[in-house]
Nucleic acid binder design. Structure first.
Lengths: 147, 147
DNA sequence: TCTATTGTAGATCTCTAATATCCATTATAG
DNA sequence: CTATAATGGATATTAGAGATCTACAATAGA
């Protein structure tokens, strides 16, 4: 299990945009060159970020991308959700009949059986998400400036 | 990004073993039936758990598997590491020359450049790992018994 | 208006890892 | 011995990530 490369590119691209002058677009070309990735591949990633309102894009000559919000309003968690999708990290093999009658399932308040393994994994995921929610594009930039 | 199905099978199988009488082997057949997975596939998973000292296996007639340690000495984190491998959740596109001179890299104590995105992701992973370390096969069983 | 530039969307291709199965071999209880 | 059961190797199969290409739409500037 690993984060995709796309997530890495997205985060680095956003940091790059955050560091550029306000109101100044950056085209896919310099962005792709700077990250060492092809333009066509990065453009797919940027499109996702645009569809989710994280960046703005201007088409046409001298167009490009800029952040749609201030860098401290863009959390790692949100970027990851956009790129990786929002399915949970662990999905119990539910619907499988065996769980309905089993040791590792427990009825929740509504009487529905819930997998106990799933519960632990959800807890673990939540821990990670809280950390990623607390970290923004801006906070990374700030931590870099103490160099 | 998701945990593999194998991890789910491994955890459920271990809970199953933990609930059986001490000193009593469970064969791959009833185990696989109970989890709703093929014997051949599950046996690969069990072999990994054995190689890592989490379960013991007895070959031959009336052989089978049992826990190699008490259930409270088997953490979720360890099981996940055995099945998923130990690479970190996020690996920065390092070695890429661009990072050596870039905004999102900072020199660590030894003078080596470290990726700032990587640092945040490592922090997030650590949060999750601490939680998974604190949860054992036994703790899941205990939480189930209050049903 | 024309043209060069730039992002968008769809199709498609490759490659890898997860999932899954089969079989020959080894080990052991009875 | 024999039936049973785990092991390890080889080998599909599949899904998703990674990556590229092209036709198209939008826009700035000549």
């Amino acid at each position: 299990m690993q984060f995709s490369k796309s997530t890495g590119y997205a985060l680095h691209a956003l940091i790059h945009l955050a560091l550029s002058e306000r109101g100044h677009n950056i085209g896919i070309k310099p962005l792709a060159t700077s990250l060492g990735v092809s333009e066509s591949y990065l453009s797919k990633i940027m499109s996702k970020l645009r569809q989710d309102g994280i960046v703005r894009a201007v088409t046409g000559a001298s167009g490009g991308y800029e952040l749609a919000r201030s860098a401290d309003q863009i959390t790692f968690l949100e970027v990851i959700h956009v790129i990786e999708g929002r399915q949970q990290l662990f999905e119990c093999l539910n619907g499988n009949a065996h769980l309905q009658k089993e040791f590792s399932a427990i009825a929740d308040l509504s009487g529905r059986k819930e997998c106990l393994v799933q519960k632990v994994m959800n807890g673990a995921e939540l821990q990670m998400q809280q950390y990623l929610q607390a970290n923004t594009i801006q906070s990374v930039i700030d931590s870099g400036s103490i160099e």
